[in-house]
Design a protein around this nucleic acid. Structure first.
Lengths: 193, 193
DNA sequence: CGCGGGTTTGATGATGCTCAAGCCCGGTGG
DNA sequence: CCACCGGGCTTGAGCATCATCAAACCCGCG
């Protein structure tokens, strides 16, 4: 149940076997079913979520009822509403399981205690945030080019773990295009080869 | 010369007067003229840059020669190509001073030593990255809505420090729209009040 | 077999891009 | 002091892309 998490940590910092054991106590394992919500926009995000198994998405809903996809998370990814988690304000994002999933939940106080107990974990989280930031910059640059096709091509490249696993409509929302446009783009690409 | 930096740090962690003094040694002060480049895409980003005074922008240039604005930084902001800085790979972004500016440069090794000497600074950087990440998510959500006007309205709201200070064409690039469109949007907004 | 969700296809229209010309204003040199 | 530039901003016309709305299709499931 902790394989992926341990793998993720070891990629960024070195910890002893003992320390890795300790870490388990700061997480709450949780299984969720397909379609189940892990966070509702408007609630306070009490956890950051690590995915051991399964597929989740986060998304927001704007005033006009339009959904906007923010993130997909598969095995080894974190997902959550960091803003709400840190500030205690209402969450902007919903998080939904697209497959049956096994999660590890970490509360804010667990995180603080964990960092307190194992200061090297602060580095882990810093590196995590940095990587997320770099990925977001990259994504922003691509969205700015505004070509639906290029967005999708780059998505196939960046997220092979999601592309044939998530329903197309959610991928469309993530890319900021309509499902219809995505369907046409896919057709175009298929015809060209 | 260090007022803004110290202010920024004190907002996130508490350090003694002595410690704040120490910090100065890890930064290289630098003044740049208007139009001067602080980083060229293709080089290695050897510094993260803190702005004490002035206005800078970072932007990338794609294959077709199109520029894409990534960030504006004024007093109290950090700017840099974090990806290149951390990994040592070639920078994707150019950084240009839009006004005469006073900067504080931090190398990777300075950063490592600083964190070593004052472990609480790791927290400062983590919080910084988190905030940047949250801001990027917000920006992405807005870009995804695709209305040029809403993008600009939200920019006025989010960056009053830039809106009447940076040339319009750079704001347009930042928003991912053309200068022409921005001009029209501004006209619309002006007419409505 | 019929239902229903997701995907595809088609027609139409709006938004924003492109290209081109004009305008405004501050700076320069005669 | 004024005429002339030049860069940036504005304005306009035509066009491409993508959204919207609506209908058809596909396929798994009761």
């Amino acid at each position: 149940m902790f394989e992926e998490l341990i793998k993720s940590i070891q990629q960024k910092v070195t910890l002893s076997q003992d320390e890795l054991e300790t870490i388990r106590h700061f997480f709450i394992p949780k299984k969720v079913r397909k379609r189940q919500y892990v966070l509702n926009a408007g609630d306070i995000a009490r956890h950051l979520i690590f995915v051991e198994k399964g597929l989740l998405r986060s998304f927001s809903v704007d005033e006009s009822g339009q959904e906007h996809g923010m993130q997909f998370a598969t095995e080894g990814w974190w997902i959550g509403d960091v803003g709400s988690f840190l500030s205690g304000e209402e969450a902007l994002y919903n998080i939904e399981a697209l497959e049956e999933a096994e999660l590890l939940l970490m509360t804010k106080s667990s995180m603080d205690e964990l960092i307190n107990e194992l200061p090297r974990m602060e580095r882990y989280f810093r590196l995590l945030m940095q990587e997320t930031m770099i990925a977001l910059q990259r994504r922003l640059r691509i969205v700015q080019t505004r070509s639906a096709e290029q967005c999708y091509l780059q998505f196939m490249d960046a997220r092979p773990d999601v592309v044939n696993r998530a329903p197309q409509q959610y991928i469309a929302l993530y890319l900021g295009i309509t499902p219809e446009t995505l369907s046409r783009v896919r057709k175009q690409i298929a015809e060209r080869r």
